[in-house]
Design a protein around this nucleic acid. Structure first.
Length: 431
DNA sequence: ACGTGTTTATCGAACT
DNA sequence: AGTTCGATAAACACGT
């Protein structure tokens, strides 16, 4: 409760200082509010700044690794305990963030992750300080949950993570999400289930545990085409799943009726907003031609096995009792980041012509101010390029080329809060 | 019991 | 104004 208040304070301050449009007067800073920010903040300055911060973050993460504090049990490396997270922040901060950005060092992760949730501790200390610059460490990052999940999965070596690993990635990267976990984790679960771009990968018998792995749908392409991880330009929709949903929803109706302009009951409307509108009007015609058999003839299992490479692979896996490594290798081969150039070109073309609007400012995935590449290690960073090469043998092209032991999200997360990215998103660049 | 996964519903903001 | 997307809440089922 009290920590919640603390967050409310900081987010409200961020909003007011930014002189932005009215904020929702609630606990959270709606990411939608942030989405509008790039247009006002996408400056080349921020871009170059972000890069330098990234490099410094790398130094911190390497130091962390030297201490052997990384976890090897997860799909990506995590620092683990809040204590070590704090250590990571302390190690990274002196290296990279010497305080152009005010009080991040004093009001940063330690206050968050360390469990000092006293309502007055951090805030009072800060307010007592005349030189206090509002801490926006608690503000909600301007990334949607879909973005965050995508970041996590793409940044994992095997391109798939368990739910808890996704949680951990997000908490490591953004201290904001160490609070009110029930709320946003519910949203994460909802996003995973609701969005077709996320594919559930069953556990293998040799890897028992709770929950499945989550991967990205191989056909989802690059949802964040321009590298901006704020809001997708078009929701990815697995058409076969959609057909299935429509079929089950109204078996007596053909698929073509899904976009009919019939009046809906209020109950239907609620459903409609999240179901039928997912149907891409441009692809309606394609839907009927995609299947040579009537959708109603397909049962759930058949559809699930049919409609993605991932799931086909899973079936193979179960039939042939493949090893987990073999399975993940297959997933990687079908992953958007590792699919053939022809397929990528096709996806790209499809995205540009049917799904995604053109990015007006011409940002690429590497230079967009809200690109994850500014938060996470990127291939273009010279000092980590060798790791890319080292790992090419593995047959996958990870978003972050670092080996497991090199990932240190705490430092990366620190990067975010210290980078102009964060401050542009919260309107603090001029502070 | 708890974590995970699915589904429905509602709301606000951005977009067309 | 209508549509689309994302956030949030909540109920429920299932597996560990």
């Amino acid at each position: 409760m009290l920590t919640q208040k603390l967050y409310s304070d900081s987010t409200t301050m961020a909003a007011s200082s930014n002189a932005m449009s009215p904020m929702t007067p609630t606990y959270s800073m709606n990411s939608m509010s942030c989405v509008s920010m790039p247009s006002m903040n996408c400056s080349p300055q921020a871009a170059s700044f972000g890069s330098s911060m990234l490099n410094s973050g790398m130094a911190g993460s390497m130091a962390m690794n030297g201490n052997g504090m990384s976890s090897s049990s997860m799909g990506y490396t995590t620092i683990g305990s809040p204590i070590s997270n704090m250590n990571a922040a302390c190690m990274a901060t002196p290296i990279g963030t010497m305080n152009t950005y005010g009080t991040v060092g004093t009001l940063g992760r330690g206050d968050l992750g360390g469990g000092d949730t006293s309502p007055n501790s951090a805030l009072q200390r800060a307010r007592a300080d005349k030189t206090y610059r509002r801490s926006y460490t608690h503000a909600k990052p301007p990334y949607s949950y879909i973005s965050l999940i995508t970041m996590a999965i793409q940044n994992s070596p095997q391109k798939m993570l368990t739910l808890s690993e996704i949680y951990q990635f997000i908490m490591d990267l953004f201290p904001f999400y160490r609070q009110n976990q029930q709320r946003w984790q519910n949203s994460i679960r909802h996003s995973l289930s609701f969005n077709d771009c996320f594919v559930k990968v069953p556990r293998t018998p040799d890897k028992p545990g709770k929950g499945s792995f989550w991967s990205l749908h191989p056909d989802s392409g690059n949802m964040f085409e321009n590298g901006c991880y704020l809001r997708r330009q078009k929701r990815f929709k697995d058409e076969k799943k959609e057909i299935l949903r429509q079929t089950h929803k109204s078996p007596s109706h053909s698929v073509d009726n899904s976009n009919s302009s019939e009046k809906k009951t209020p109950l239907q409307h609620g459903d409609d907003t999240h179901k039928s509108h997912h149907l891409d009007k441009n692809s309606d015609g394609a839907l009927s031609s995609m299947l040579s058999i009537h959708p109603s003839k397909l049962d759930v299992e058949q559809m699930n096995l049919l409609h993605t490479n991932d799931l086909n692979m899973h079936q193979q896996h179960h039939q042939q009792n493949m090893s987990h490594e073999e399975l993940t290798a297959m997933v990687n081969r079908c992953h958007p980041l590792s699919i053939s150039s022809e397929h990528q070109a096709m996806l790209h073309h499809s995205s540009m012509t049917h799904h995604l609007k053109q990015e007006p400012s011409g940002f690429t995935s590497s230079n967009h101010p809200f690109s994850i590449n500014r938060l996470l290690p990127a291939e273009s960073k010279p000092d980590i390029k060798m790791y890319t090469e080292m790992h090419q043998y593995a047959g996958y092209n990870t978003l972050s080329p670092l080996p497991n032991s090199m990932h240190t999200h705490s430092t990366i997360g620190n990067d975010y809060y210290n980078s102009p990215l964060y401050h542009t998103s919260t309107g603090t660049t001029s502070l």
